[in-house]
Write a protein that binds this DNA or RNA. Structure first.
Lengths: 335, 335
DNA sequence: TTGAAAGCGCTAACAA
DNA sequence: TTGTTAGCGCTTTCAA
């Protein structure tokens, strides 16, 4: 069952390859009659052009590479879907590469994109590596770093999560918390470190204790044990992201501690699918995706300059933080 | 900044194109010395082979197409990631096409895959269409239908969610519920319909009333209003899937009704990233992905026969269903 | 061990 | 309006 090619089509229709090609691609210079006939026969024979052959001769790839850290996290799934949709609207294709949480795969991803001749790359650059930036700049492939501001001639879209982190601390203090902890997941992650630093610094600035404010449990299972050990009840736990906040909440449930009855929790990201009642710092994922795509497109199509874009984060108050000041807040789901 | 090609490499190294090609691909028949030199120079010049050119001449595509309904739903994101990982381990690439919730895009996705000459397709076939099945079978591209058993010579991987659905009803009855409703989202969705039917039938078999047991609200916003109108407090709401269950819970919260205090909820899927104890019917997403991939691989590489695989679902009891029989269950997060 | 030449399926000049 | 020719970058015979 060999695939039918343009050559077969030429033979059968009696026209030449080029005529067939023109007809099929709606190019000028083919008679209306011939065009119709060619298209009809092509359909009959189930002809589909060979994508690779087409790409190799036409040079116009119209493809962008998207490299993200973890599609399992709805935050990044949303980002990918948004980019994919924009790409489609602009008649581009996307090629996706999943780092699957392993920053060492970044270079592989970039190489793959190069091989596939993408017009541009959107790169979620976690696990910062100077050499990669350098080689990316030198390759002169239009690129946008997603989530991070890098000091090089390359476009970047990031969200300043420090404002949100500070808001979270301030909100906690306002709600009467004496014990505020940052629960991180991964010391190697730049965002994680930055959020931790911001929380610590804000606590300091507000004259709050910050000893033990960092916890990086090696695994999900140990989290509850660590919290129980280090954090007194009625602590506020500011978590690395929403996913991590979920793990924390689930872990606590296993030891019969409930949120926000026993502990209060704040996340980062503002993931849509889950956050019933989760107070969180909104990282505007759609706008980030959009900005990244626009920046890339500008570079690809209009030779636009590189540009740094920084969006704002803000705290979204929902129901996972109990009011310790005596107010009777209606909180979370409960029996 | 033209990309360096194998021709450039030939010119610079002094060898011919074919020698360079062999050297770079670790083929036999090239002197050790020459090979090393060629590889060195290729590296120096930052040579990356043109993926399309390679594909067009080598015929060996090792690519599988994955078409899924909605990557925004963590269930499908997990499925994709699992397939992607398996593919990588088996030295395949994946091409992804997102239906983005629109079943009319299915044919487009398939055409795209054909164009890209995939070795096989894993197709999430929602919005059942006989013609598509037929054309897929006729195309003789190895394919696996994901999530549904189709009566045709094509492999299928599905999970029998009816056992889980019945368990959910039985569990509800055991917990003392007199009012059990199915909350669907989309009448066009096969799973949605099947789950609804199963719940209705089981209720019937158990001598329970089933009038009004279906609710298909046109939008998320109207859901709470409909529930308030149709379902008395302390109803059990069996929802189409976890995402939808979350929407239901969120909608109810907006009108100050809490789960499981005022209503109990059961979902389908068993998505991990949920910040509370949602009782749900587990659909084994990883195993489904694995089976689908294995089946496809068998067909591609060993000309394996088509096969139907059906996995089991089961109810996972957590904390979103209150015990109405008087037992004092520790339920859900609460202040 | 190496190189010349053909060809993959298509597009794009240019000629007829 | 149509056909001829060349060529995209690579792999793959087949000779040398």
């Amino acid at each position: 069952m060999a695939k039918v090619t343009i050559k077969d089509l030429a033979k059968i229709t009696g026209y030449s390859k080029s005529t067939v090609s023109c007809a099929l691609n709606n190019k000028e210079g083919v008679g209306e009659e011939s065009r119709k006939e060619i298209i009809r026969i092509a359909k009959e024979m189930g002809y589909t052009p060979n994508y690779f052959a087409r790409r190799i001769s036409s040079k116009d790839y119209r493809t962008i590479g998207v490299i993200l850290r973890d599609l399992t996290n709805p935050f990044y799934a949303n980002v990918f879907c948004a980019i994919d949709k924009l790409a489609e609207e602009n008649d581009y294709e996307t090629i996706f590469y999943n780092l699957a949480g392993d920053s060492r795969r970044t270079q592989c991803g970039i190489d793959l994109m190069k091989e596939k001749m993408v017009s541009g790359i959107i790169l979620d650059f976690f696990g910062y590596d100077k050499n990669i930036v350098k080689s990316l700049v030198e390759s002169s492939i239009p690129s946008v770093i997603f989530g991070l501001n890098v000091d090089a001639d390359i476009s970047c879209v990031q969200t300043d999560d420090t404002t949100g982190a500070r808001e979270a601390v301030d909100y906690g203090i306002r709600m009467g918390y004496k014990n505020i902890f940052y629960i991180g997941r991964n010391r190697g992650d730049i965002f994680d470190m930055r959020r931790a630093d911001t929380v610590r610094k804000r606590l300091q600035d507000c004259g709050m204790p910050y000893a033990h404010c960092l916890i990086y449990p090696p695994s999900k299972e140990e989290i509850a044990g660590l919290i129980l050990k280090k954090c007194p009840e009625n602590s506020l736990l500011i978590c690395y992201n929403d996913i991590w906040a979920c793990s924390v909440i689930q872990g606590l449930m296993k030891v019969r501690k409930y949120v926000p009855r026993d502990y209060s929790v704040i996340g980062f990201d503002n993931i849509e699918v889950i956050p019933y009642g989760l107070t969180t710092v909104d990282i505007p994922q759609y706008r980030m995706a959009e900005e990244a795509f626009r920046l890339l497109l500008a570079q690809i199509e209009h030779n636009g300059k590189t540009k740094k874009v920084t969006l704002d984060s803000r705290l979204i108050v929902r129901d996972s933080v109990k009011d310790l000041t005596g107010g009777d807040a209606e909180v979370f789901s409960r029996p």
